[in-house]
């Protein structure tokens, strides 16, 4: 009996959280128009969310591409198909690894920072202070951060894929002796702009949306204590990772299911 009571309470709580999250999202989206009037706020957040994630994304992308080049070469050379290394590296990066790994890194690097920042603002009653001054904290604090995350994510994912492909080329043609022309031409012949690149960008837009939403909501919804903020930060990373990977499966099934 006790078990069912816990199950029921858990269900009720997750539904109320989902409801609060949805209302929060609606007010964020409503606040976006006021961000456009003050681009300075957005620019500051683009700096802390996008520019500061730049380095980790570039370096991770380079190494992921280099590892793909090495592993791909060892497997493909068994079948005498080293020339298709470019196709393998580019397809896996553009379709899957670019959006997914960049989003996971983004959640760890920028999402956790957003949650901690907002949670601490709440704990030190800065948000209530703003309300006392008749400044809407959602319009002033939350919406610019959301928009910055939403805009940065596709750029970071594209950067990740591009750097990864160059990394794969460095290892493949520089180290392992794959023909440079074959690397690029096979890639160009087998990758489709609409089918591969645009779908990858759509994925990263969805991930940017969901990650920014989760990070900001967890911060805004955090219990305003040191422990509450720390838990909220953990929840941001865990929930973002779950939703990114889950949504990736659904999106992949929808986009690439028929071929």
């Amino acid at each position: 009996m006790e078990f069912f009571r816990y199950l029921g309470a858990g269900t009720r709580e997750s539904f109320t959280k989902l409801g609060r999250g949805s209302f929060f999202l609606i007010s964020i989206l409503a606040g976006i128009s006021s961000v456009c009037v003050r681009p300075r706020l957005l620019l500051k957040q683009l700096h802390s969310v996008g520019v500061l994630s730049f380095l980790i994304i570039t370096i991770s992308g380079l190494f992921v591409g280099m590892v793909l080049g090495l592993q791909g070469f060892y497997i493909l050379s068994r079948f005498g198909a080293e020339e298709t290394l470019g196709v393998m590296v580019a397809t896996s990066l553009v379709r899957e690894l670019g959006p997914v790994v960049a989003a996971l890194l983004f959640a760890g690097r920028a999402g956790s920072a957003l949650t901690a920042e907002i949670g601490l603002m709440k704990a030190t009653e800065q948000l209530s202070g703003m309300e006392m001054m008749a400044i809407d904290p959602i319009k002033r604090i939350i919406s610019p951060r959301f928009l910055a995350g939403f805009l940065s994510m596709p750029l970071l994912a594209a950067l990740f894929s591009a750097v990864g492909i160059i990394g794969g080329q460095m290892v493949g043609t520089g180290l392992l002796g794959v023909d440079d022309g074959a690397y690029w031409s096979q890639m160009q012949a087998n990758l489709d702009f609409r089918g591969d690149i645009v779908n990858g960008v759509i994925k990263s837009i969805v991930f940017g949306f969901i990650t920014s939403w989760i990070a900001l909501f967890e911060g805004y919804d955090a219990i305003p204590t040191a422990e509450g903020v720390s838990r909220a930060t953990t929840r941001t990373v865990v929930n973002s990772a779950f939703s990114i990977l889950g949504l990736d499966f659904i999106l992949t099934a929808l986009m690439f299911g028929d071929n």
């Binding site: 683009l46 700096h47 996008g50 520019v51 730049f54 580019a90 553009v94 940065s152 596709p154 750029l155 970071l156 594209a158 950067l159 894929s161 591009a162 750097v163 492909i165 690029w184 890639m187 160009q188 012949a189 990758l191 489709d192 702009f193 591969d196 690149i197 990858g200 960008v201």
Partner: peptide, 20 residues
Amino acid sequence: LFVATGIASLFFLGLQVSNL
């Protein structure tokens, strides 16, 4: 710089990687 690099990599993907 960040936005320019991001857009440049999108162009790179479009022009160099796919057959656009």
